[in-house]
Nucleic acid binder design. Structure first.
Lengths: 237, 237
DNA sequence: CAGTGGTCTAGACCACTGG
DNA sequence: CAGTGGTCTAGACCACTGC
């Protein structure tokens, strides 16, 4: 007989489970529908809850599911396309989607201070904003602006003044990076997620001449967002 | 006495652990150094291994750690900046970093077929390439090109012909999206990771006139890569 | 209040790496 | 081969949501 019937042997249970569930989501469930609870699902598939959860974790990471404590697990809608063009809010009409939340004059995190080329204790203007789309919070932003660039304010400046200063810089293309991160406690609260949730970190550097004068860190929900870079966000699912 | 001394109470253990470890990484370890094994670490902190692993998972997600089965856990170097400009390999000199791996004429995945506006069974030219930087694999790419755009080949075309056809389109800016995904088995192998590892999915659409004629799906290791969008990748850590 | 997902435990076995 | 990280189990308790 076949000495070798090797394939299909070792594939982790949670990986097979994920495939099965993924197919089921495509065929048997509608967006928004709620799934059976984790204990029932685990029993149905004959695995421990932890194993079932590993599969659900992956599906949530891929934006297929949405879980909420005390409520249940629902089938997620397609990811929302969020334009991330050259200047962050240089788009006409986009400006208004960002809602200022707080404003302060305080030292920036070490990583930001390094980008700005200042000491760790030097205070900078800090503005926190949030971005909603289709009714749900999608991104949290932290803006750090060198005090020298916000005119005539000792102490904390109003958010408007800081934003105006930034607006004058916007056309100057800042470099930009995208990377994976996990939500800090504060951002998680704004995004209606638990701390540690996966997020896409978009870092923008604003320059005046050769100097970096401001840094923006945008924190996007990785489960519900798809960043669109070109002109078109017509990559609908 | 204070009835309320509420703060600091409920923060998950793995979250505190992560902070402690994160600090330790900054101060007590050098890049490439290997940490104590998970069982020892768990014992040292007085938690179960599963809990310790939750913390390590997060740190790995953030690119601070690198774990390899059978070997150990090491401190990861800073993320590699990978330029992601308008056309994917329109950069002079960048072209050579992509190494062709395989080439075929086969049906594309459903999601890609939809973008190309063709049926699920229609075959397209498919090229698989990999991208290495600083000696390690960083991205896997799948190119899908409509047969009508690869001249004079029935059956499978050589990779060169497909790439040449794409080269003629490259300057035409395609739209582009970035989102979080998990590595499929095949990509995971190319990237030297386990299936399911977090990846950044960059999808590029190539158009000729109004028609989408090709689609590229780039799969970047999310733990080791930072995508740079602007001109400069000088955001060194 | 009952029901949900989130955290945690203490074990076990497996797959892989290196000497 | 010994040692590592990866998977899996069967249970427990907690935090949160909604009725």
């Amino acid at each position: 007989m076949g000495i070798t019937q090797p394939e299909t042997v070792q594939e982790p249970k949670y990986w097979q489970l994920k495939s099965v569930l993924s197919d089921a989501l495509d065929t048997e469930f509608a967006v928004g529908e709620i799934l059976p609870n984790e204990r029932d699902l685990a029993a149905r598939f004959g695995v421990a809850r932890a194993t079932l959860r590993q599969a659900l974790d992956q599906l949530e990471l891929e934006g297929r599911l949405q879980r909420r404590r005390g409520v249940g697990t629902t089938v997620a809608p397609p990811r929302i396309g969020v334009p991330v063009a050259s200047g962050p809010q240089t788009w006409p009409g986009e400006q208004e989607l960002w809602e200022p939340v707080a404003c302060a004059l305080a030292p920036a995190p070490a990583a930001v201070a390094r980008l700005l080329g200042i000491g760790r204790a030097e205070p900078v203007h800090t503005v926190r904003r949030t971005h909603a789309r289709q009714g749900q919070p999608v991104a949290a932003q932290l803006l750090y602006v060198l005090p020298a660039f916000v005119p005539a304010c000792d102490g904390a400046a109003p958010a408007g003044a800081v934003l105006a200063a930034l607006g004058r810089l916007a056309p100057a293309t800042g470099d930009r990076t995208v990377e994976l991160g996990s939500a800090r406690a504060e951002d998680a609260r704004e995004l209606d997620r638990l701390p540690g949730a996966p997020v896409l970190l978009v870092t923008t550097r604003y320059t005046a001449g050769a100097r970096t004068v401001a840094v923006a860190v945008d924190t996007y929900r990785a489960d519900t967002c798809r960043l669109t870079l070109g002109d078109a966000e017509l990559l609908a699912s």
